[in-house]
Write a protein that binds this DNA or RNA. Structure first.
Length: 113
DNA sequence: ACCTTGACATTGG
DNA sequence: GCCAATGCCAAGG
C-alpha cells in the first residue's frame, strides 16, 4: 500500500471548499498524480472517517455521481451536496456552475509542493 | 511475475 | 446525451 499517494489525495480533497465540487481527474492532477484518477476513487474508499475527507464533493468528469442511482452511497452523497446548495439534476452536477477553481499558489502552500 | 479489479477519462457513433 | 470500446494504472491475490 502506497500510503503516501493516499495522503496526498486526501489532503487535496480536504482543500475543496463547501459548495464546490471537483472531478477525480482534477484531484489526481492537483495531487501531482496525473493519469491516476482511478487511484483517487480507491483512496477515498480507504479514507479514515476521523479525518472528515469530503469525498462527496468528488464527481466524474461529466459531473455525474459515481455511484449507481438509488444506491445507499449515491443517496447519501446527493443529500450532503444539497445541504451545501449544490444542485443535482438527473444524477449530475452542472460543473460549469459548481466546479472548484483552486488558487494554485495557495494550494501549493497547503500541500507543501 | 501474471491476472483481475475498479468511487475513471476520452473518443467515436 | 447515451452507450460501447479503449486506454489507463496502482493494488491485491
Amino acid at each position: 500500500m502506497s500510503q503516501k499517494n493516499y495522503e496526498r489525495i486526501w489532503q487535496t480533497v480536504l482543500a475543496i471548499p463547501a459548495g464546490r465540487v471537483a472531478t477525480y481527474g482534477q484531484i489526481a492532477d492537483l495531487a501531482g498524480l496525473p493519469g491516476r484518477a482511478r487511484l483517487v476513487g480507491k483512496a477515498l474508499g480507504y479514507a479514515p472517517t476521523n479525518m472528515a475527507v469530503p469525498w462527496f464533493r468528488v464527481l466524474r468528469s461529466d459531473g455525474k455521481i459515481a455511484f449507481p442511482p438509488g444506491s445507499e452511497h449515491a443517496v447519501k452523497q446527493i443529500g450532503r451536496l444539497q445541504e451545501e446548495n449544490v444542485a443535482i439534476l438527473k444524477h449530475r452536477v452542472h460543473l460549469k456552475t459548481f466546479q472548484w477553481q483552486p488558487d494554485l499558489s495557495e494550494l501549493m502552500f497547503k500541500l507543501r509542493y
